[in-house]
Design a protein around this nucleic acid. Structure first.
Lengths: 297, 297
DNA sequence: CTGTTAGCGCGTTCAG
DNA sequence: CTGAACGCGCTAACAG
């Protein structure tokens, strides 16, 4: 009997209607992913890995572009998320308005924060070990014999970026060095290039820790081409993230690697866990220094 | 009265349930976006622009990662698309199994193909003018005085890639040149690097048209660093796409620009058009040559 | 094991 | 202009 029904269903091209299913069963297979700056290589890689993992677990990724709300304001996005009754929302955007998160939480939508902290909210939170990573990076520059290091960050007051900057500054201070901290641009290639122009204009800078690889790529190019520095002979450079470009031949950049696989599995654990009976995920992911050719070793 | 209801709704935190809405009104605001290789810069940029445009039009992007189906097969993805009753599906994947497209069409789901052709299907199709672009690229190398040009492609038999290769080859032939065609690797940085190693091992190659920028970046790096070529003195290189990296300082690459804005608005037009009373969108988008420092001018 | 029924939240229609 | 009823396709609970 069952067989016959199945046969007929196939013959008629029947397909479950997920909308109706979600309507009744109240547990959607939709997961909202809030992303800003998708075209940043680091984000793109994470998004790719996450959407793949979701698919494998039978869930579906509802993409939310935080950058596109510039004009209309964020409220439209909030509505959209809530209206679709998503199972959870993963916040990967560097600068997500806390408003979204608060609103979702108060409406009972599970929120998973990636490299972001909302004070007082008891959400699942996954953090890269920025402090350890920044200390590794600073240590590398110290070991290279740098006497006047620069720390390159951006105006975006992201949690990760702030922590990296502060931890590196602290490590330098411990070693008796006083770093130049430059944070006037955006977290982009151009921002890094501008940082190089401005920091290397005054003499003495012999090492730079750029808080993201994307910044570091611009910094490297401008340092070499425009400012005439040899890397690593005159200048040591360390990045953070280990995006694919960092290992490209023309960069071969020393950097701090973020473990994407570990990150993704932590996110999936947070999504899949039983909200009622298990505690919130609260992971700090370990990082490692990848030594390539922009430091002296 | 209406006011009072609205007030109460707000007070109670009421939100429209899009699932129920879609269930009855039969026109979802969900648009499926099928992407392979999200972390390729060209794709990432397109995806970012498209998700933003969809958001602005009040629609929502259901992300479908074609790459993640490697293991399980493609059928799961098809089901997912159909089950959600999406308004349309945009196929941006370079190598999307025709099976998906056929299945969607036969189930009445509107399919919008980007740089892809399915024979016999009367779908909305948007193509970059690959032929014109490849001819521009070839012309640039011819004008540079190249006598023995190479065309670098990949094993992926994508429509766009094939057309670019063939059109460039034809233009070279018209100029009395016989190009070396190399297509043994993947459409990646590493693929380009390998192409450089292999094509430049034999002497004589003095120009290269790489069918994507991503390939061209790898080609450039390997040509300079490993093979000791000066660009553009010994070797002219032209790419295709104009991804952000192409304009980075360490590359400054001459390339053929794809108009992302035009592409996105064509896609939106195809999504929004009234299926019953308007004809399918069938655009070929113009391209232009952006001359930078990897050609001699 | 099979068949029936109620109700999820919405839009539409038909009465009042 | 407002109110009530129906059905979209599904799941769950209950009856035979």
């Amino acid at each position: 009997m069952r067989q016959r029904v199945l046969k007929a269903a196939e013959y008629l091209g029947y397909r479950v209607n997920r909308l109706a299913q979600g309507l009744i069963s109240e547990r959607s297979i939709l997961v909202g992913v809030l992303v800003g700056n998708m075209s940043a290589p680091y984000m793109a890689r994470q998004l790719e890995a996450l959407s793949g993992a979701l698919l494998r677990e039978g869930m579906q990724c509802l993409l939310l572009n935080a950058a596109a709300t510039e004009g209309t304001g964020i409220s439209g996005l909030i509505d959209r998320i809530l209206e679709f009754r998503v199972r959870a929302i993963v916040v990967m955007s560097g600068v997500p308005p806390s408003a979204i998160v608060k609103e979702c939480l108060s409406n009972g939508v599970r929120v998973i924060l990636v490299n972001k902290l909302i004070d007082g909210a008891k959400t699942d939170t996954i953090l890269t070990d920025d402090v350890a990573g920044a200390r590794l990076a600073a240590q590398r520059l110290i070991d290279d014999g740098c006497k006047r290091p620069a720390i390159i960050s951006s105006v975006a007051g992201t949690l990760s970026l702030t922590r990296r900057t502060e931890a590196a500054a602290a490590r330098f201070a411990e070693a008796g060095l006083s770093p130049v901290i430059w944070a006037k641009g955006t977290t982009t290639y151009e921002g890094g290039a501008r940082a190089a122009r401005e920091t290397l204009a005054r003499p003495g800078i012999d090492g730079a820790f750029c808080v993201t690889d994307f910044l570091a790529l611009g910094y490297l190019d401008a340092a070499r081409v425009e400012m005439g520095r040899r890397v690593p002979e005159d200048l040591s450079v360390v990045g953070f993230d280990d995006i694919p470009q960092a290992s490209w031949e023309s960069y071969r950049m020393t950097t701090v690697r973020q473990p994407v696989d570990t990150l993704i599995s932590a996110i999936m654990r947070a999504i899949l866990r039983d909200a009622a009976r298990s505690k919130a995920v609260n992971d700090v992911l370990p990082v490692e220094l990848v030594e390539r050719s922009t430091t002296r070793k």
